[in-house]
Amino acid sequence: MRGPVLSDDAARVAALHRLGVLDQPPAPDLDAIARLAAYIAGAPYAAINLVDTDRQWQAAVCGGERGEVPRAQSMCDVTVSVDELVHVPDARVDSRFAANPFVTGVIDVVRLYCGVPVHDNAGFAVGTLCVTDPSARRLDDGQLAALRDLATQVEQLFELRRQHAQLVDVLAEVDHYARHDPLTGLANRRTLLDHLELALGRGRRSGVMPTLFFCDLDGFKSVNDRYGHDVGDQTIVAVAQRLAAVVREGDTVARWGGDEFVVLCEDLQPHAQPIVVDRLRTAVESPDDEVRVGLSVGIVQAAYEQTVGDVLSDADRLMYADKHSRRQLA
C-alpha cells in the first residue's frame, strides 16, 4: 500500500534531485551507516532508501543487494508521506503494510519495520533509513533514538555531497571564464598562449611547426561609430562564430582582444596556408551582411628556435603589412 499523497510531492522530489544522490555508485560512508543501523537494531537488513516520483532507489544496503522497486511497493513511502518515524513491530497487523508484497511473501516476509525519515536542508523528506526483520518484535527507546541519530548523519552526508557538487560546478565555471573570452566564448589570450607553447613543443618533436594566423577586422571602427557598440559587439560575436565554424576540430580560435583574433593550426603544410586564409576571409567578408567588415591576416609558420613571443610578434607585424597592402589595393 502506498502512503497518503503528499500535498507538494513534486517539490519534495525536486529537493531529492537537487541533492544529486540518486543513481550513484556504492558509497562506503553510506554503506557503513546501513551496517551500523542493522547492528543497533539487531536486524538482518537495513537500507537507505530514496523515494523518487515513481520508484524507490537504494543508496545503501546491509543484508542484501542495492536496487529499486516501484514506489507503489515501497514500505518507506509511508514513512516519507507521514514524515515521522514509523515503528511497526508486526507489519501483518498494520493496515498500511498488511497487503504489501514485502510483507505477504511475494517479495519478502517483513515483520518488524522501522523507518526514520531523511530530510534535505529545506526539510523535505527525501527518503528513509530503515531496518527490517522477518521476526515480529519491538525496538526499545535507545535503539529508536540511535536510528534517529544515524538518519541525521545521512542528512549531513547528503548535504556535504550537494555542497561538493555545487562547489565543483562553481570552480568549473570560474575556470571556464578564466580561459575563455566572455563576449564570444572563444579561447582567450591566456589560453592561446598556453596552446601555442604546447604546440611549439609538439612541433619541435614532430618536425612540423605550428602555423599562426593573426587576424584583424578591417572597417570595424566605422561599425562602432555608425551603429554603436551594441552592434559592434554583435559583429564581434558573429565573426567569432564564423571563424570557429571553418577551422578544423583541433585548431584553436582565440580572441586576442578588441577586433583581433588568432587561429592556431598544428600539422598544417605551407601549401595549405592560402586555403585557410581564403576560408577565414570568405567566412567573415560575406557580401550579404548588412554590416560589412574585412579581414587582414598575418601568417607565420613558427621556426624551430622561435618562442611564443617571437611567433606572435612576427604574425602581428605581417598582419599590419597585409592591412596596409589591402588599403593600397582598395
Score class of each variant (00 low, 15 high):
110 V>H: 08
244 A>R: 13
324 H>R: 14
4 P>W: 07
311 V>Q: 01
2 R>V: 08
273 Q>G: 09
28 P>I: 10
144 L>T: 10
203 G>T: 02
216 D>K: 10
148 R>D: 08
46 A>H: 03
148 R>C: 09
224 N>T: 01
131 V>T: 12
247 V>M: 12
86 V>M: 01
208 V>P: 02
81 S>E: 06
35 R>Y: 06
55 R>T: 08
44 P>I: 05
280 L>Y: 01
310 D>G: 09
266 E>C: 13
141 D>R: 14
122 A>S: 15
38 A>Q: 10
278 D>C: 01
102 F>D: 00
321 A>Q: 13
270 P>M: 08
106 V>E: 15
164 H>S: 10
215 C>Y: 10
255 R>K: 12
290 E>R: 14
170 V>P: 00
219 G>V: 04
98 A>W: 04
100 N>Y: 02
71 R>Y: 13
219 G>C: 04
97 F>C: 01
129 L>T: 05
182 P>I: 07
87 H>D: 04
306 Q>F: 02
133 D>N: 07
74 S>K: 05
284 V>F: 01
266 E>L: 07
228 G>A: 05
3 G>W: 03
304 Y>M: 09
17 H>S: 10
133 D>A: 05
272 A>D: 15
102 F>H: 05
175 D>F: 08
216 D>M: 11
190 R>A: 12
163 Q>A: 12
170 V>N: 04
246 V>Y: 01
100 N>S: 06
118 V>Y: 01
320 Y>Q: 05
20 G>V: 03
5 V>T: 15
203 G>I: 01
99 A>Q: 14
39 Y>A: 15
112 L>M: 10
185 G>S: 12
119 H>E: 09
138 R>H: 13
148 R>M: 06
272 A>K: 15
39 Y>R: 15
188 N>W: 07
272 A>W: 15
59 A>F: 08
309 G>K: 04
302 A>I: 04
224 N>G: 01
328 Q>T: 11
173 E>D: 14
68 E>F: 04
95 S>E: 15
315 A>K: 04
286 S>F: 03
223 V>C: 02
205 R>Q: 13
133 D>T: 06
274 P>W: 11
137 R>T: 08
66 R>L: 14
324 H>G: 02
18 R>D: 14
165 A>L: 15
242 R>K: 13
271 H>I: 13
146 A>Y: 09
135 S>G: 14
96 R>W: 04
307 T>E: 07
68 E>H: 09
124 F>L: 06
27 A>E: 11
215 C>W: 09
31 D>R: 05
147 L>P: 00
197 E>V: 02
134 P>G: 10
254 A>D: 09
22 L>P: 00
273 Q>N: 13
53 T>V: 12
146 A>T: 13
187 A>H: 04
179 R>C: 08
300 V>R: 00
114 C>A: 14
41 A>C: 07
239 V>A: 02
194 D>V: 13
20 G>K: 07
